[in-house]
Amino acid sequence: MTIKSINGCIGCEECVKSCPCDVIRMERGKAVIAYPADCQICHLCRMYCPVDAIEMAPEKSIPVIVPWG
C-alpha cells in the first residue's frame, strides 16, 4: 500500500510539497493520500513531516514489472 497512513496531520503541507510524484493532496486542511498508485516509496514525505505523522509500507498498490525474477 506504499504510503500507508497519515495520523496526527497538522496541515502544514510539507509532505504535499516534498512528494516528487504528487501522491499527497490537501483536503479540508489535512493531507490525504490521493494517488497511492504513483508512490515510489522514497519516504521523503515521512522524512519532511514535522510531526512524524506518516507511516510507510514497502508494498506497492499496483502490479510491479521487473526484468526477471
Partner: peptide, 16 residues
C-alpha cells in the same frame, strides 16, 4: 525481489 518497488527499503539507510 521482495517488494522490488520499495526504493527506500532497498537502499538501506542511504536515503537518510
Amino acid at each position: 525481489s521482495t517488494n522490488p518497488a520499495a526504493c527506500y527499503d532497498g537502499w538501506g539507510d542511504m536515503f537518510e
